[in-house]
């Protein structure tokens, strides 16, 4: 293999590996992400730039066209995939982007066989102090991002508890489903009272629901008077037992009766 096309071989190999990972359906995001970033933002653009303009480019122009043409490839590939019978899926994205990369790399080699990837500006290192400052800057930015994310995650505006009442589905179609979800960060105890008019149909005095947990119960319709108004569910918190905390209601239609 000619040393002059080593970059194109590397690009094609990376595209094949990235496509392989997607086709094998590797579940780890940490494994897939670096290859996905390469396959989407770098490899097609690099290969297309090489095929169209050759490889003896300045660093900055090459970087711009590599990223820009990669984005263009993704945008236009989406249309192609949409008009294919398989649509936009991991496998089809991986296959098409890998085909573009490998095809363009081959074309680049055929069009510019004698041209090696060169840079008119060899990269100089920033030195120890410079590297240290760059490193410190990166640490500060990562720290700032983590800080903002943590605080944003920790400040919910309200402690949310959801109460709902819906007609039962499937095997429960002859009943009414009542549900509670505790969205707060601690477990909570509730009392649930289900009634029609002044008649209490059901009462659950101490429902303990963990943080993020859900409780559901069914109300059968055999004790219900169709003309006695809606079925209502009242939820009370253990620390304020006399004050309705949540309230839902449901009118029976002739079909449900």
């Amino acid at each position: 293999m000619s040393r002059r096309c080593v970059d194109l071989v590397c690009v094609s190999a990376l595209a094949a590996i990235a496509a392989g990972l997607a086709l094998l359906n590797v579940s780890s995001v940490l494994v897939r992400l670096p290859f996905a970033l390469l396959l989407l933002f770098v490899l097609p653009g690099y290969a297309l730039t090489a095929a169209i303009l050759g490889r003896a480019l300045m660093n900055l122009e090459r970087l711009l066209l590599t990223l820009g043409l990669s984005l263009v490839s993704a945008i236009l590939s989406g249309l192609v995939l949409n008009w294919s019978p398989w649509g936009l899926r991991a496998e089809t994205w991986a296959s098409l982007l890998a085909i573009i990369t490998i095809g363009a790399s081959f074309l680049a080699f055929v069009r510019w066989p004698a041209m090696a990837a060169t840079s008119a500006q060899p990269l100089a290192r920033p030195g120890i102090v410079g590297s240290l400052l760059f490193g410190l800057a990166a640490v500060v930015v990562v720290g700032a991002t983590i800080l903002a994310s943590n605080i944003a995650a920790r400040i919910p505006s309200t402690k949310v508890t959801q109460l709902w009442m819906l007609p039962g589905q499937g095997p429960d179609s002859g009943a009414i489903q009542v549900g509670i979800r505790n969205e707060s960060s601690t477990s909570a105890t509730f009392r649930l009272q289900i009634q029609q008019g002044n008649t209490i149909l059901d009462e659950l005095p101490a429902i303990v629901i963990s943080a993020g947990g859900t409780f559901q119960t069914l109300v059968t319709l055999d004790r219900i008077q169709p003309s006695a108004g809606p079925i209502e569910a009242f939820l009370y918190r253990a620390d304020a037992p006399g004050i309705p905390y949540r309230h839902v209601l449901f009118w029976l239609t002739p079909q449900e009766q």
């Binding site: 579940s27 989406g78 936009l88």
Partner: peptide, 15 residues
Amino acid sequence: PGLENATNALMSLSG
């Protein structure tokens, strides 16, 4: 759908 195409590609390939 240009933006959504590129986003969908990254989602699909990376999870």
